[in-house]
């Protein structure tokens, strides 16, 4: 459903004639269908995760937290990799498209931070259930928290002053350094002794160890959260584009105002000289 501007004629055509904005949202036909598909797939994740999938022989009902915990960390990893790829593009290109890539990087990092926070929260609840503690200074848990803090720092760097181009280049460098932590987090359970479980789907010999319906629910979760990520990045980077455009317009107005003041001052000085 298109949202249109309130106009004197009460129609989008009237708004266009009046020169006002006609499109008052960040959606397209594609994102609307993507949104519907995302909501439907999330509902299926809840249904299969809470009801249809069987309990695990070792963890019992606690395994139901896997579908949220793995889904959210998957999106966080994907988001941070997308941030790094877009940031590499920012440093590679020096044209206006670099700013689009910068906004994709920023939107993706914001979403990654949200999902990383949800991962830590779900992990704390699952940890209390499995290990008897909300938090342990385990290699996987600690490196994940460190990754979360790193990307909070990345977002802080994006919020520093300067032009959009300066923001893009500065934060791109940080993103390319931050992404190097992901392999450390992922392989931390192999590098150090850890109470965190190893890979969920397959064992060390790559044999799939999950029950069929549990595997299906986990894959469904990965797909649903991935759809959500794509939908969210598209909308968020459009919001960031509009924020940048408003900043530019504000800057243009301030410069024009300053020029008018300077011209007025010059005219007064000329008048005084005569």
């Amino acid at each position: 459903m298109a949202i249109t501007a309130p106009t004197t004629s009460g129609s989008p055509a009237g708004a266009a004639r009046a020169g006002g904005p006609v499109v008052l949202h960040t959606g397209t036909r594609f994102t609307r269908w993507l949104g519907i598909l995302t909501i439907a797939s999330m509902a299926l994740v809840a249904a299969f995760g809470l009801v249809f999938s069987p309990p695990d022989v070792v963890q019992g009902e606690g395994v139901r937290m896997l579908y949220i915990h793995v889904g959210t960390i998957w999106v966080a990893y994907v988001a941070f990799v997308v941030t790094a790829l877009a940031s590499a593009g920012v440093l590679w290109k020096r044209r206006s498209s670099a700013l689009t890539l910068d906004r994709i990087a920023g939107a993706s990092a914001e979403i990654g931070v949200v999902f990383m926070a949800l991962t830590l929260l779900a992990g704390a609840l699952w940890g209390r259930l499995s290990w008897g503690k909300f938090w342990v200074w385990d290699a996987r848990v600690t490196t994940t928290a460190f990754l979360f803090i790193t990307y909070v720092g990345y977002l802080a760097v994006r919020g520093l002053g300067g032009s959009h181009q300066q923001r893009a280049r500065r934060s791109a460098v940080v993103a390319l350094l931050a992404v190097l932590e992901i392999p450390l987090v992922h392989f931390s359970v192999k590098l150090w002794r850890s109470v965190h479980q190893d890979a969920s789907v397959a064992d060390r010999t790559s044999n799939v160890t999950l029950d069929g319906l549990m595997l299906f629910t986990l894959m469904l979760s990965l797909v649903a959260f991935s759809l959500l990520f794509v939908w969210w990045v598209l909308h968020r980077q459009r919001v960031l584009a509009m924020q940048d455009a408003l900043d530019d317009r504000g800057l243009d107005l301030a410069l024009a105002e300053r020029r008018r003041e300077a011209q007025a001052d010059a005219a007064i000085e000329r008048g005084g000289a005569h």
């Binding site: 904005p21 499109v23 008052l24 960040t26 459009r238 919001v239 509009m242 408003l246």
Partner: peptide, 10 residues
């Protein structure tokens, strides 16, 4: 997004 879209031309 809706709030910002009101403030900008298409």
């Amino acid at each position: 997004g809706r709030s910002l879209a009101r403030q900008l031309p298409d």
